[in-house]
Design a protein around this nucleic acid. Sequence first.
DNA 1: GTAAACCCTGTACCTAAGTACAGAGTCAAG
DNA 2: CTTGACTCTGTACTTAGGTACAGGGTTTAC
Lengths: 136, 136
Amino acid sequence: MESLTIGRLARLGGVNLETIRYYEREKLLQEPPRTPGGYRLFPTETVRRLRFIKRAQELGFSLSEIRELLALRMKPGSRREHIRARAEAKIADIEQKIRTLTSMKNTLRNLTERCDGCGPLSDCPILESLDEEVSE
Amino acid sequence: MESLTIGRLARLGGVNLETIRYYEREKLLQEPPRTPGGYRLFPTETVRRLRFIKRAQELGFSLSEIRELLALRMKPGSRREHIRARAEAKIADIEQKIRTLTSMKNTLRNLTERCDGCGPLSDCPILESLDEEVSE
DNA sequence: GTAAACCCTGTACCTAAGTACAGAGTCAAG
DNA sequence: CTTGACTCTGTACTTAGGTACAGGGTTTAC
């Protein structure tokens, strides 16, 4: 199994090198083995994990929520039912996000379609309705 | 048309009063009219705007992205084609977010289903695949 | 017409999520 | 076996997005 120095990992994952050490401190990455001289050696799949973290952040998950998501798979001692419940909760979160995004998209779609026909946009109050469509 | 003092608006919108002044400085809310004594008087639809901002934030939009979204409707002078292009770009963003969320959801769904049947989760590397499924 | 409750501006402070050194040690290519 | 690129720990700084006063004026309810 290949392994990566922190600098290589940072380049492959598209993040700053210091960010990796930060994630390690914050328990988003587990402490990697070291060379005799103390250099970190990360398993190559850490690249995927970094990319996952970035993606989840862009979707509005905080680092501690992401930590939880990742922990769903990593805890050997936890009970199935417990994990299952937490996964269901995450799924519900995600579905809500999808619903909101879908309604934002529809609203924007309307905007572009409707405004093909009408003149200046000043009195096209479509986005004003976004918040309504989007409410629970 | 009813109007709201800043304190009422804050309560109705579920945000801190200082946040409203902050949003005004940051041009997410336009400067409201004032009473003779200098008190802000917000139109009631500002409540909906506040709620929209909060929702969009939860979906990972930064305040400046949200400012752009809101501006899609507010600029009377802009050209239709220009606005249309920006709306299309936002729609593409949103669709990408939806795709990523959908694949996260499916992965989690898999996790709960599969682990109904299997024993301890330690070697259920399902989430490890999230980052792959989720890549572009 | 005076408290209590509100709001004003301005400035300082806070948290999350990084980023940037400094000073010192390690690795690897020639 | 040295030189340049890399990494280490530790501490300090930064940015976005707020929050919290202080000191003073305004409204409203009696």
